Amino acid sequence: MTPATMIEQAFAPAAAAIDSGNIPCAVLGVVTANGERAVHWAGHAQIEPVHELVSRETWFDLASLTKVIFTTARILHFVEAGRIALDDPLVTVIPDLRQYDLNAAERRLTFRQCLAHNTHLPAVEPLYTYGQDPGTLRAFILQRVWQPGPPVYSDINFMLLGIAIERITGQALIDQPLPERFSFRPDPKLCAATEKDTWRGRIVRGEVHDENAFALGGASGHAGLFGTIDGVLDFALSLLDGSALSPESIRAIRTRESEKRTVGWEGFYPGWHGGDACSPETIGHTGFTGTGLWIDFERGLAWSLLTNRVHPSRHKDSGILNLRRATGERAVALFDQHGRLSAT
């Protein structure tokens, strides 16, 4: 079996989803620890108002992959540089967090807790409905009396981390330096379209789909990053080969902070989006727009499935959970059978 045939077989569930109209397009990429990679793609980057084919060079709104590719990695780099410690409270760099109540629970939140979604903060809040002034919305996030609740996967955690990055660097997130093939300001003509947004009154393309990130100026700690499949695979390879982070940081993203969460990432559990064929040493993350990345450290294998499942509307059943699981299980099975999965 040729590498091209193997990646095509791994892509079969995505091809079926495109043919059935569940998603407009998909790009699947796989990379191994020794640098072999395979990429396959099909479908349309845009179907409204006109049809445009997807390609290997198409830029996708990575949505919550921003949390791991940008925010988590950047925070860990600050830890490695001695600028902060994971168990430092956020007020170390955001002293005005809940500044009118020095006993507020938010003032005790640590970087580790926010990265691992181990806080009392809610999953999400429609901040964009309060206005679109980025400075005022940041102040609202910092001074809001957040209602306590059990730990949940929370965008608010990463909004706070994004503000922390801005405070440490003195630079807005949208202006932060990024690796090649990533951007907070992509060329819209190169991007896959996302939703026909009733709030903005247009098809969203080349601007962040997430309303809160848009209102915060186009980039936030939880969303706003765009990238190509090869950019995502480059990042995955840098974790597999240890070049992106220190051994201590790699250990942190692989070590459980809770049943399902590590520092920044989700760890393997039965029924998760990455599929049940993953080894227990697999971490992953998904994005609302239809993106995902999984890294199996035991196998030395990573794969990313990028789709624009919310185009032209999020209000349909795209079957994304089953698609992700089937894709991951096929990619792992083919790797186990053949020991390689690469094609140019």
Rank of each mutant, 00 (worst) to 15 (best):
I69D: 14
H120K: 02
R83Q: 10
H77N: 10
L109H: 04
H77P: 04
E106Q: 15
L115A: 08
L90S: 01
P89D: 04
D101P: 00
R83C: 04
V124E: 15
Q113C: 09
L86F: 02
L102N: 10
L115V: 04
H120D: 07
S64Q: 08
I69N: 06
L102E: 09
Q99G: 07
I94M: 15
E106N: 11
A116K: 09
F70L: 03
F111E: 11
L62T: 12
V79D: 05
S64P: 07
L86M: 11
V91I: 12
V93R: 00
W59T: 11
T72P: 07
A73F: 09
T110F: 02
E57G: 05
L76H: 13
A123Y: 07
I84R: 02
T119C: 03
G82M: 09
L76I: 11
R112D: 14
R108G: 03
H120W: 01
V93S: 09
I75R: 10
Q99I: 02
A85C: 07
H120V: 01
L86H: 09
I69E: 06
A104I: 02
T71P: 07
Y100S: 05
P89E: 00
V79H: 00
F60G: 09
P95A: 08
H77G: 13
A73P: 01
I94P: 00
D88K: 02
E57Y: 10
V68G: 13
V124F: 12
T58Q: 05
R108F: 02
T92E: 04
D101I: 00
E57S: 14
L76V: 10
R83T: 13
Y100F: 03
I84H: 03
W59I: 15
V91G: 00
Q113N: 10
R98G: 03
F60H: 04
Q99K: 12
D101C: 08
L76D: 11
A104V: 06
E125R: 08
L102P: 04
V68D: 14
Q99F: 01
G82K: 15
D96T: 08
F78T: 06
V68W: 10
S64F: 12
L109T: 05
V124N: 11
A85R: 14
A105S: 11
H77K: 11
R107V: 02
D87T: 05
T72D: 11
L121Y: 12
T119S: 03
H117Y: 12
A73G: 05
C114W: 05
N103K: 09
R83G: 00
T72V: 12
T110Q: 07
T71M: 14
A123P: 07
E57Q: 14
C114L: 15
L97V: 01
T58W: 07
L62D: 13
P122G: 06
A123E: 15
L65N: 12
R98H: 12
V91E: 07
Q99Y: 02
T110A: 03
A85S: 11
D101H: 05
P95H: 05
K67T: 09
P95R: 03
R108V: 00
I84F: 00
F70I: 05
P122I: 07
A85K: 07
